[in-house]
Design a protein around this nucleic acid. Structure first.
Ligand code: NAD
Ligand code: NAD
Lengths: 219, 219
DNA sequence: TTGTTCTCGATATAAAATTCTCGATTTAAC
DNA sequence: GTTAAATCGAGAATTTTATATCGAGAACAA
């Protein structure tokens, strides 16, 4: 039986997925400098990672390198992008046009990473109808229906935590398959819904603990 | 030999640290509901985590529970906060008052999680001197000196990637010990500097891959 | 009181991820 | 050509992380 990219037996390790963008960013700067090839040893030195690990991560994308040379930079970039699905752009809805929501709406780079936020929704009357970052804010009540009609599969939640579950329910009702959740709450969704939490406090916790330990060690 | 919190032999597993805020948020809602005690089984059910894992994570903070009852909610919250150092508030500087920087500046909740962004810096003349989220934006050139004089230990980078290394260098020059980096680039800093990367693209990569696999499976 | 049930906490097992080792391959220098 | 240096790729070993098991303690109901 042929093993293709989509029906491979074992799932991709999440740590690998999380490192791929790091490689991608680094490779983009190499490409901009006109560099043609790069080895895992070089990347490891620059990115503070074990070369073997990088080699294994890259192997996941299906690309192969050449001894003594390394990998062709542009090929590698392409392999990572297609592996992550950054080639075909996903349309997304965003709910909660506050501080964070507006920042995400205004981030043009996302278009290069497979993400296009096509509409924004809020419940605040003062915001509905206005433009934020050049995109019109619509009432949340229209979200589910629009998602279905526009075949939007991805939703981004940037509302306060107390409203996140309701928004998630609306997204599921609208046929959305995957949710990028920035609210610090664990959503309750049907099995088949993909939920990716982006919890800034997780990151802050690691930092806080390390800093606290450091400062204590110094008395 | 006595093993205290600060000189324990083995470091805290990072996955544990990353889960602690999740427990914290959940416990806060329980507390608001007036709940006195909670068991790992209950938490596991609500948070989709293995109860044994939660028990191990909580044990790291030094708290103990009671059979048949569980843990006292307020004690647990306190244990997590003190374990992470969220009790004594760290003053922080933020560099790069763009979309994302402004969102972080405007996020009052941070004060409850040990973080107080006391000043913001930028190189854009149009922004310097202005107020953003009620905080004055100062020229980056003053950052290092001010950090030293105010004994600020924490820096947040929200500049474009191409300027992040320069900003990091300035922070190190100002005696800053820890950096929370939102720019998608691996910073090069002295050994002793704590760098915590918050790479939104890592999160996006996991989501993109899963969604891509899903959509492909559906043809 | 007494048995039942729930839960902690310690220990053991399993799974996952990282790091190490080594042969094969290719380039480039001599 | 021949040799030396670098690097890939596959597999083994190690470390880390997650899950399962089980005895003991505490509440609660009968
Ligand atoms: N701003 C940050 O830096 C930051 C950092 C960490 C986490 N977060 C989290 O991100 C989320 C948003 O934070 P923020 O600072 O942008 O908050 P915010 O208060 O600035 O914005 C929230 C927005 O959501 C809207 N909203 C409320 N209920 C809604 C609903 N049912 N449907 C649609 N929209 C609704 C509000 O009208 C508002 O515009 C919060 O959950 C917060 O905890 C933010
Ligand atoms: N906005 C988002 O949603 C988002 C998402 C993912 C990653 N990021 C990353 O976060 C960073 C900031 O993104 P953004 O959208 O806020 O960008 P932005 O362009 O809105 O803001 C960048 C700010 O940094 C300032 N700046 C530039 N050079 C500086 C320097 N040397 N010192 C101090 N300030 C300087 C600019 O004047 C500007 O105000 C970028 O690295 C971006 O890749 C942002």
């Amino acid at each position: 039986m042929m093993i293709t990219d989509s029906d491979q037996a074992r799932p991709i390790p999440e740590p690998t997925l999380r490192r791929l963008p790091t490689y991608h960013h680094f490779l983009k700067t190499l490409e901009a400098e006109g560099r043609e090839a790069v080895s895992c040893s070089t990347m490891g030195r620059e990115l503070n990672l074990d070369p073997t690990q990088i080699r294994k991560d890259l192997a996941m994308t299906g690309i192969t390198g050449r001894p003594k040379i390394g990998y062709v930079v542009t090929d590698l970039i392409g392999a990572i992008e297609s592996f992550l699905g950054w080639n075909d752009i996903q349309q997304a809805f965003l709910a909660g046009v506050g501080n964070l929501g507006a920042a995400l709406l205004g981030y043009q780079q996302f278009n290069r990473y497979g993400l296009d936020i096509v509409a924004a929704f809020d419940t605040d009357e003062a915001k509905i109808g206005r433009q934020v970052q050049g995109k019109e804010v619509m009432p949340l009540s229209k979200m589910a229906d629009l998602a279905r009609r526009m075949h939007v599969h991805l939703g981004i939640i940037t509302t306060p935590a107390e409203h996140a579950q309701y928004v998630a329910d609306q997204m599921v009702a609208g046929g959305i398959e995957a949710i990028w959740n920035f609210a610090p709450i664990v959503l309750s969704t049907p099995e088949h819904i993909i939920v990716q939490d982006e919890d800034l406090f997780s990151s802050l916790a690691v930092l806080s603990r390390r800093l606290r330990t450091r400062l204590q060690a110094m008395q």
